[in-house]
Simulated scan of single mutants.
Amino acid sequence: MATDPKTTLKTYIDARREALISKVEGLSERDARLPRTPTGTNLLGIIKHVTGVEAVYLGDTFGRPFPHPEELIPDERFDIDPQADWYATEDETIEGIIDLYRRVIAHGDETVEALPLDAIGHVPHWGNEEVTLHQILVHLFADLAGHGGQADILREEADGAVGWRKPGDNVPPAYDWPAYVAKLTDLANKF
């Protein structure tokens, strides 16, 4: 196991990224973008959102903008629709958004590799607040973990798929979920 802090942070961030991407695997375009909450949260929108966030946090923040800004949402689009990064447009696809996300990740990884953890950056949408790479990596991990939790619930709601769907998953492979839910419902009904 790696012991240096940068490698440790990167390992956990990479795991969260892959878990998030896995939440749209095997879904149709419709199911990936279908709103699943009263505020319209959807699986593909979550990935589109983190794509833009990572482009800023590990790009612009450290003076290393993503080399293809035309592929990201232009700032003026947020003036028209402040939720523009939370859904896929008609001309975007799961494959296209995942491809863009992976390229943003690769660019961000170059930033992480090139800079020490105490490198100073300025987050544009935080009023150019001064931060270190270390702070941004911790913030990014927390952000990805939160969005991963959203995605876990949305994917389960979409088709019942739970966990990371890979070996070592922490979800029991064969479990009587209806009986489990009935047990929990009975417990809740006692109050």
Rank of each mutant, 00 (worst) to 15 (best):
L133C: 00
D91Q: 14
N189P: 01
V112W: 01
E95C: 08
V131M: 05
A151D: 03
I105S: 06
H147C: 05
H139Y: 11
R36M: 15
G148E: 05
L133W: 01
N128M: 01
A119C: 05
D186F: 07
R103V: 05
L44W: 02
L20K: 02
K10L: 15
I73S: 12
M1H: 10
D169T: 09
G63H: 11
P167V: 00
K183F: 07
D79A: 15
K23W: 01
V131N: 02
N128A: 07
I46A: 04
S28E: 14
P69A: 11
I13C: 14
Q150S: 08
P65A: 04
V181H: 12
G52T: 03
I120D: 07
P172T: 10
P38E: 04
A188D: 02
P124D: 01
A106L: 08
P116N: 02
F78K: 11
A19F: 12
V138L: 06
A188M: 08
L144G: 00
N42K: 07
R77S: 00
W86L: 15
A55E: 01
D60N: 14
D14E: 11
A174E: 14
T51E: 07
W86Q: 14
D91E: 14
I98H: 04
D91V: 13
E129K: 13
I13Y: 12
D186M: 07
E54T: 01
L140E: 03
H125I: 12
E92A: 03
A182V: 06
T39V: 09
I94C: 07
E71P: 11
L154R: 00
P69E: 07
L133T: 04
A142C: 14
I80M: 02
A88H: 04
E95K: 09
T132C: 06
V24N: 08
A32F: 09
A158L: 03
T93R: 05
Y12H: 15
F191Y: 13
